[in-house]
Design a binder for these strands. Structure first.
Lengths: 153, 153
DNA sequence: TTACTACCTCAAGTTAACTTTAGATCAAGG
DNA sequence: CCTTGATCTAAAGTTAACTTGAGGTAGTAA
């Protein structure tokens, strides 16, 4: 049993720290695949544990389940993914992490120049108005960090 | 009007890129304070723009509105915050950013050692089982990255 | 005067990511 | 044989963070 290639939902839950219901939910959303055994019970390949791990890490990086699903769809659902399969995802992941680190560094820099300026002068604060330090122009919308808007009104 | 100390909700919306309804929502949740003018219209201090900026940035860092509210509660709600007021928050923020950068770097390291190991051997993968590289012990739950669980079942 | 446009309130709707509840099945242990 | 524990399904509930809708007021432009 210990080395059975197919494991129960409870095992996945214990090994990943997730709830059984969450794993059921992941399966029903198509993030995981399971065959069925006696009495309709889900049977997962052991590699599903790794898949769940990947999902959890991705979530911490801020990906939605939909996005994760898209990324994971490049993995073979049927056979156990190979080294090369994971390597591809990992490289992509690594780049994304670099991206995030860079964004955070930028944010930190903006923040310290903001401390410098005292965060009081709206016209010169780098955090408030990053593209427009020298300008003092009109008063249209100014987005923060350059990656909004999110405004549909 | 341009330098009026009190501004309309529409102005806040334009300057922050947020929707009017979101700002209304923030006020009703206690994240922003407004007085009322003619016909019950909200009047915000100009400093509310900065406050909203702070909220947006914090959200990008993954804080919930509740947490942000807690942090912002250390700012004076009535008078316009001073340089020192913002500096305190900024320093705290900076530390948090450092923290996140460090976590991401760790993640990236784990990831590359995982590429090294091929992500196939569950017993030796650093990402899968960071605390337990040498061990090969029993099969209790193993959490990722050391900061779960989130499992209430 | 008639349109706009910006604003108001209150209630209900939305989406993501799960959890909870209720009622049923099934294998193993005492 | 009976109970316990793990599992199942289907449907409804939950929380955060907003948006949308309905119906109304108020000031400004043609």
């Amino acid at each position: 049993m210990k080395n059975d290639p197919l494991v129960s939902i409870g095992t996945i839950a214990k090994r990943t720290g997730l709830s059984v219901s969450a794993i059921r939910f992941y399966e029903s959303s198509g993030l995981l695949v399971a065959t069925r055994g006696a009495g309709g019970r889900r049977l997962f390949m052991r590699s599903a544990i790794r898949r769940v791990s990947f999902i959890l890490i991705s979530q911490q990086l801020g990906y939605s389940l939909e996005e994760i699903k898209r990324v994971l769809s490049s993995l073979p659902a049927q056979r156990t993914p190979t080294k090369a399969d994971w390597q591809k995802l990992s490289r992509q992941f690594s780049q994304d992490i670099d991206h995030r680190i860079e964004k955070l560094s930028q944010l930190k820099n903006s923040l310290s120049s903001c401390i410098g300026c005292g965060c009081l002068s709206l016209k010169s604060c780098a955090l408030y108005n990053p593209d427009d330090r020298a300008a003092g122009l009109g008063d249209g919308p100014r987005y923060l960090l350059g990656d909004l808007p999110r405004n549909p009104e």
